[in-house]
Simulated scan of single mutants.
Amino acid sequence: METLNARSSRRGGAGQDVESVLDELYTTPPSDFVARREMAAAAAKTAGRVDDARRIHAARRPTLAAWAANLLLRSQPEESQQFLQLGQALRAAYRTLDADGLKDLSAQRRRVVSALSRQTAQLARETGHPLSESVQQDLEATLRAVLADPDAADQWAAGRLVNALTPPSEFHLGTAPPAEKPGTRKAPPTRASARTKNELAERRRARSEQLARAQEAAEAAEQHLREERARRADVDAGTAGARAN
């Protein structure tokens, strides 16, 4: 499989758009990053694109975990887009649901992050850059941050992470109306209290819909990752069989 870096070298950096150069640069393994950056900057400078050369030269080398996250985004656009959509659905649910309603979602979230992390580790191995256990942990932290934090999601979606991302300690839960204390006497119904009941009913309906959307997104992401693992297993088995013959 031809890498992004190989395609870049084959085309030559002089005629490339600076954004394309930077996109490809951030999928270059960190060990090759500086050499590739200087080569691309020199090509841009030779072509008279001084501002582009300055931008390329200013690019910072990513950590191995950040590179792996960038590689995932560029190499698996469908899975990555689905993961971003899952984050949107989860954040909407976590803003409105109480802790009991989020138990299943939390388990699904962990499964999706773990599966996507393993898939990314496989991509890294295929490029000849296996991830250590600590790097894998940083990668999983980055993926958790993408699900929980919209700013982190935007950073990852740009495909140019320099460092691993840190997830918030927890999703920001919505504020539920305070529970009534035992023995509290209920006020007689009024127009205002009827309106409040209607509002609460509408909130419950919205919460149920958001939970359903988040669960559907999580299940779809899990199913897609299972299918991708099965596809890769078939490819690996076919390759091994061809080598044996």
Rank of each mutant, 00 (worst) to 15 (best):
M1P: 00
S8T: 04
R10H: 03
G12F: 12
G13M: 01
G15P: 05
E24T: 13
L25C: 07
Y26T: 04
T27N: 09
T28R: 11
P29N: 05
P29F: 10
S31C: 00
V34L: 12
V34F: 11
R37S: 08
M39F: 14
T46H: 15
A47T: 12
R49C: 01
T63M: 05
N70M: 03
L72H: 14
L73M: 03
L73V: 04
S75Y: 13
Q76A: 08
P77R: 02
E78G: 03
Q82I: 03
F83V: 01
F83R: 03
A89H: 15
A89Y: 15
R91L: 07
T96H: 08
D98S: 06
D98F: 01
L102H: 01
L102Q: 11
S106W: 07
V112K: 08
V112R: 05
A115S: 11
Q119M: 05
T120S: 02
A124G: 13
T127C: 06
P130W: 15
D138H: 11
T142P: 00
L143S: 09
D151T: 02
R160K: 08
L161Y: 03
L161H: 06
P167K: 09
P177R: 10
A179G: 03
A179L: 12
A187W: 00
T190C: 11
T190N: 07
A192M: 08
R195S: 10
E202D: 07
R203Q: 09
Q210F: 15
A214L: 14
A217P: 00
E222G: 08
R226V: 09
R229W: 06
R232Q: 04
G241Y: 04
